[in-house]
Amino acid sequence: MAVLSSRPFLTVAIVAAVWIAASFASRGFGAYGHLRYLVELGAVIGLVAAGQTFVVIAGGIDLSVAAIVTVSAISLPLLSWQADPTGLAPVLVVLALTTIIGLVNGLGVALLRVHPMIMTLAMATFLQGLLIIIAGGSAVTAENPLVHWLGNARPAGIPAGVLLWVAVSVIVLTVMHATPFGARIFAMGANPLAAALSGVPVTSTTLAVYGISGFTSGLAGVLVLGMNGQGYVGIGDPYLLASIAAVVLGGTSILGGLGTYAGTIPGAILLVTITALITVVNASPGWRSILFGSLILGLLLLSGREQARR
């Protein structure tokens, strides 16, 4: 059966199994409110991992996503205009800023031919330094109506952040699987040389991919700021490993060229589920981290290993 061997389906099945098992084991886990909360948390990872999925399929990796989430969550509160009662303008400015950061990553990778790991890691370090200078150690509070709405409103009982995630998912899946741009990304990831010789504009496609990653990380930063109310240095830190793990758990090849965001979505939910289960265990923070890391590694060993390619 094609459906059973499909990785996205497999990941959904694992999530469902874990949810069912956990709701028997722990009272309250399976409550609607709790599951809704899990998906809401998953939305942040899902947004960061949307851009990461593009980058990984294109054969790269973006290690600056966590820093970009923080940039977004810290710079937004610093921008406030009385003239704009909706709060939309600062959000757009911040998203433009994070997209530009992504484009700079893309420039380094495509034109200066810096390895994606080095380029984005250097970018992350640079941004962290900048943030410390700008924000110092203190948390900044957001007073932006749009951001507040995004993090707290529940139109028709569904968290606004989840709605945002759904909208982004539809766009991402369409662009990835139903446009020539998406096809170019897969081609570049599978064989960059053959893609270039087939006329794929490699430079602009690389730029676009990292730009998208900057944009979705920025969007995740806005959402996390809304949910949290405050931005501080380090707020984005959990999302680096989480975004990559969600991509790989969802069946996207870390070598590039194969995969889908349809797998990343349940991958993100699986990650928050694991986090929730660890919290139930009631371990100390150090042990939680150790458990989380080990569980991700274990899951990847079970499902994420891939055959060597020639």
Partner: peptide
């Protein structure tokens, strides 16, 4: 692109040329 389908391989020059976001 060995890991992609024969169809995708045949269509690649078209993908490279078509407007990026055309369905």
């Amino acid at each position: 692109h060995l890991i992609h389908t024969i169809t995708t391989n045949m269509m690649l020059p078209a993908f490279a040329r078509l407007p990026a976001l055309k369905l």
